Simulated assay, not measured.
Amino acid sequence: MAVLQAGGTGIWGAGIGLRNIVLAAIGALAALALVLFAMLAERANDWRTRGEPRRLPRDLPAAATPPRPIGNPARFFDPDDYPVEALRQNWEGLSRVALLVDEEGQPTACEVVESSGHSILDRTTCRLAVQHARFTPARDRQGRAIIGVYRTFNVRWQMPTDT
């Protein structure tokens, strides 16, 4: 009479090894998923806060030529962009901002240099400038595109007149 024995070389022994491999693979995939989720959450936060006023870096290399706007900056703003709350409150003012411009001429950050007196107007200025403005990038002495700051971007918020 033959007796079946479960041992390291039998079917159950191979199953334990396979089970350990599968569990290790699942653990590795779970760790990878957590890392990817953290990266996506960080990227989402960057996109969510893009255009929100903040302090620009002060330690950038000096540019031989600063960034220059492409086109008429007045076209970056439309009367429909006037914040509804500001319209209700009859708020007006001049927002002066500085923009951080990357090597491709895209604004990536905004700092309020002089407030309009209404944070909603200042935030809207930054958001729209970062979304719509385009620049020729700053250049170093060798002519290479570098990160630069466009110092004075002014937007005068005036209540629309009925005509």
Rank of each mutant, 00 (worst) to 15 (best):
A62M: 11
N72W: 08
A74N: 15
N45H: 11
A64S: 09
A44D: 14
P83R: 00
E42L: 01
E85C: 02
A63G: 06
A86D: 09
L87Y: 15
A74T: 15
Y82T: 01
F76P: 00
P66E: 06
L56F: 08
L40I: 06
A86E: 08
D81V: 01
D59Q: 10
A74L: 11
R58M: 04
N72D: 15
D46R: 13
A74P: 12
T49L: 15
W47D: 13
R43N: 07
A64Y: 07
P61M: 06
D59L: 02
A62V: 15
R58F: 03
T49K: 12
D59S: 14
T65N: 12
L87N: 13
T65P: 12
D81L: 01
D81H: 04
P53D: 06
E42K: 00
P61N: 10
E52Q: 05
R54Y: 05
A62W: 05
E42V: 00
R43D: 07
R43C: 00
N45T: 10
D81R: 02
R50D: 10
T49M: 13
P69Q: 06
R48P: 00
V84Q: 13
N72Q: 05
P66F: 02
G71E: 14
R88I: 13
A64E: 13
R55H: 06
N72I: 02
R43S: 08
T65L: 14
R58C: 00
A44W: 15
E85R: 13
P73R: 05
R75I: 04
D59Y: 08
L56Y: 09
A41L: 11
N45R: 14
D59P: 07
E85Y: 09
P57Q: 12
L56C: 09
N72R: 04
P69L: 09
F77D: 02
P73I: 02
E85Q: 12
R54S: 10
P69K: 04
P69F: 09
G71Y: 13
D46Y: 13
A64C: 00
R50T: 14
A63M: 05
F77W: 04
A44G: 04
N45D: 15
A86Y: 08
P53C: 01
R50S: 13
R54C: 07
R68H: 03
D78T: 11
D81Y: 04
F77K: 01
P61V: 08
R54M: 05
D59E: 14
L87V: 11
L56Q: 09
G71R: 02
F76K: 02
F76T: 05
A41S: 12
P53K: 04
A86W: 10
W47Q: 06
I70T: 03
F77L: 02
D46M: 10
F76Q: 02
A86F: 10
A64D: 13
R68A: 10
R88E: 15
A86G: 07
P73D: 08
R68I: 04
R88A: 15
P57M: 06
L56R: 08
R68K: 10
D59C: 07
R54D: 06
A62C: 01
A41G: 06
L56D: 10
N72K: 03
P53L: 01
R88H: 15
D46L: 13
F77V: 03
T49P: 06
A41T: 12
E85D: 15
R54L: 04
L40N: 12
P79A: 03
P79I: 05
Y82P: 03
R54N: 08
E85V: 05
P67I: 00
P79K: 03
A74M: 14
L40T: 07
A62T: 14
N45S: 12
D78V: 02
D80W: 07
